[in-house]
Every structure is written in structure tokens, then in C-alpha cells.
Nucleic acid binder design. Structure first.
Length: 191
DNA sequence: ACCGGGATGTTCT
DNA sequence: GAACATCCCGGTG
């Protein structure tokens, strides 16, 4: 189990996203295996929060890679991205779903609405709720050894042929096929 | 199974 | 004032 280095994230989000599949995300004393992500590329991507340039909310996305961009949406949900690319660019990968791996009792207590374990992390806001990720963690460096959110490689390779489809929940940029999945995994946000 | 609507508040126009 | 990278619940079939 080694922490993914900054060089892993210092690439185009479209390259990082599929490589992140099957990696472990660790936070809130729980672990999940990433099975669904989406790539966002700021200035050329109408679906990105950074499309119209930096704002107080999105400034982290324009900073150096390996930091967490956490945003609040629909009045009640948190969603988490990892910033990719180079400092000054705007690219990130949204964590959309994971397979629960460790700390399942804690996840269940944080997600009382989940009827089955496959519902614990099967969506970007569910994942954050299960792993206790919220705005307090916005901007943290996930490459630091003592980071409260870490990405780990335990030797499981990403899929040779990941699922690829359009991103979910967007109006602008909805046509771009920048969603990547572990095909047919039961923990996906949808098929 | 599928679908429709409500919750709830920050952000940007 | 509208939009929002969502989720949950209660309806119907």
C-alpha cells in the first residue's frame, strides 16, 4: 500500500481518471475501491466549474495537482475531486463511486438511508458521506503522508477496458464521454 | 422496476 | 432569481 505520488496527478485528467479506477481512497477511518470517476478540464470544458475562470469557490482547481477540491451542491451534498494537471491549469477528477473495503460499520452509521452495502458509496455525495468528506477538507494535499484523505495503490491494476460514457447530471458539456467505470461493478451510481 | 417531486442553500447572473 | 457534477421517498405497475 503506497500513497499515490504527485506525479500521478500531474497529468491530463483524461489520463488520470481511468488510472484511478481500482485505487483505494482512504478517509474518515474507512476505505473504498474507486469504481467510477469523471474527468473535468476547466477552460475548454463547459461542464467544469472552472469554465468561466477562477472564483473563490473554484480556486483550488486552478492550483497544483494532488489537492482535494470539495464543493457543496443542491443545498445539502458534498462532492470531492482530485486536482490534476499543472499548477495554473484547471483540471480535476470527480470521485463518483467506490466499493466499500474497510470501515463498513462506520459507513453504515454515516449513511442510514443505505438499504444495502452497495448503496454506501454509489454516488459522488454518498461516497463523501460514507467517508466523512466535507468542506473542511477542501484544498488539502492528498500526497502528504499524514493527509486525512489519501489515495493508495495496493497492486490491483486498473481495468484494461474501462467503461466509458457521457458524464452524469450535467447540462453543458453533457456530450463529452469523460466518465470512466469498472464495467458492471455493482457499486456504480448507475449502469 | 421505473418515475416524479421535494429537500435545502450556495454561487453566480 | 436561476441553476445546481444529488439523493431520497413515495407513488404506480
Amino acid at each position: 500500500m503506497k500513497v499515490l505520488p504527485r506525479s500521478f496527478f500531474a497529468r491530463d485528467a483524461l489520463d488520470v481518471a481511468p488510472d484511478l479506477l481500482q485505487k483505494i481512497v482512504e478517509a474518515g477511518r474507512c476505505e473504498g475501491r474507486i469504481v467510477e470517476v469523471e474527468a473535468y478540464r476547466g477552460r475548454e470544458d463547459p461542464g467544469s466549474h472552472g469554465f468561466r475562470g477562477p472564483t473563490p469557490r473554484t480556486e483550488v482547481m486552478f492550483g497544483p495537482p494532488g489537492h482535494l477540491y470539495v464543493y457543496f451542491t443542491y443545498g445539502m451534498h458534498w462532492c470531492a475531486n482530485v486536482v490534476c494537471g499543472r499548477d495554473g491549469e484547471c483540471s480535476a477528477v470527480l470521485l463518483r463511486a467506490a466499493a466499500p473495503v474497510a470501515g463498513l460499520e462506520l459507513m453504515r452509521s454515516r449513511r442510514p438511508a443505505a438499504r444495502r452495502d452497495r448503496d454506501l458509496c454509489s454516488g459522488p455525495a454518498k461516497l463523501c458521506q460514507a467517508l466523512a468528506i466535507d468542506g473542511v477538507l477542501d484544498g488539502i494535499d492528498v500526497c502528504a503522508a499524514d493527509s486525512p484523505v489519501r489515495f493508495l495503490d495496493d497492486g490491483v491494476a486498473p481495468p484494461d477496458d474501462p467503461g466509458c460514457s457521457t458524464r452524469i447530471g450535467l447540462s453543458a458539456g453533457a456530450d463529452l464521454p469523460w466518465r470512466f467505470t469498472v464495467a458492471d461493478d455493482p457499486n456504480l451510481s448507475r449502469s
